[in-house]
Write a protein that binds this DNA or RNA. Structure first.
Lengths: 122, 122
DNA sequence: GTCGTTGCAAAGCGTTTGCAGCCTA
DNA sequence: TAGGCTGCAAACGCTTTGCAACGAC
C-alpha cells in the first residue's frame, strides 16, 4: 500500500515521536516542515493508518483527545507528564493482573497510564 | 453545601452505580425516575460535583466520553466489558510500578483499565 | 420580590464528511 | 482526460453557556 505524500509526512512524524501524538500535535509538528497540510488531511491520514493497522489509537485519562502511535511498538504503556502534558512510551508491564479480576470475569487486555513529572519538568 | 434537587438525584444514581457512568448513562438512568432533568442540568450537576470534590472524572481508553463516579471510593481501578460496554470498579492495585518509570521521571499516580468480558457476557 | 435552579436553544470544540479544484500520469 | 489527493467549509456529536421562566423563601 503506497502512501500518499501527506500520509508519508504524518507517518514520519509519528515514527519520530517518543510517544503517542494527538492530531493537533501532529499538525503543530508539521508546521515545522515545508508544507503544512490541512487538519482534515491529517485526520484522513491518521484514520487511513488505523484502518490499515499501521497505527493504534490511544486515549489517556483526563485527556479527551485521541492520540495515535505506530502499531509496531509492541506491548507497552504510557507516562503522561502532568506539567508539560507530554506523553512518552514506557517499556515494561506490571503483569500479575489476574488477581484483580472479579470472579466470573474474563481478562483479555489492559491499559496502564502513569502520571508524574517528566525528566524536563522534575 | 446543600444539594439542589437535580444534584441530589444525580448523586443518588452515581452512588448506586457499580462503576463510573457517563452523562448519557446518568440521563438514561434518570428516565426511570419520576422526573427527568435536561441534559444541561445533568452536566451542571456533574461539574458542580467535580468542583466540590464529590465526584472524580474518569476517562477510559477507546471511549471518548467522560465518566463520573463518587470520589469516596478510594484507590481502585476499572474493568470495561468489551461486549456490553459496562464499566465496573475493581478493588486492588498491581503496585510495584516504580520500576517501569524511566530515570529522571517522578511518579505521582497511575491509572489502570482492564478489558475483557463481564460475568454476564462471558 | 429576590435569588437560585432549571430547560431550551445556541455556541464551542474536536472530528468527520461533501465537494470542488489541483496535480500527476 | 481520468483518477486520486487535498483544502475549505459545512456537518456532526458531546459538552458548555446564555437567557428567560419557574419555584422557594
Amino acid at each position: 500500500m503506497a502512501l500518499t505524500p501527506a500520509q508519508q509526512t504524518v507517518f514520519d512524524v509519528l515514527s519520530d515521536a517518543e510517544g503517542p501524538l494527538s492530531a493537533a500535535e501532529v499538525l503543530a509538528e508539521l508546521k515545522n516542515h515545508a508544507k503544512t497540510p490541512g487538519i482534515a488531511t491529517v485526520y484522513r491520514a491518521l484514520n487511513a493508518g488505523l484502518d490499515s493497522g499501521t497505527y493504534v489509537a490511544v486515549t489517556l485519562p483526563g485527556d479527551d483527545t485521541t492520540r495515535y502511535e505506530p502499531a509496531d511498538r509492541g506491548h507497552h504503556h504510557h507516562f503522561a507528564c502532568t506539567q508539560c502534558e507530554r506523553v512518552i512510551d514506557v517499556a515494561g508491564c506490571p503483569g500479575r493482573l489476574s488477581p484483580l479480576v472479579p470472579d466470573g470475569f474474563t481478562l483479555t487486555g489492559h491499559d496502564l497510564t502513569l502520571f508524574g513529572l517528566c525528566d524536563v519538568c522534575a
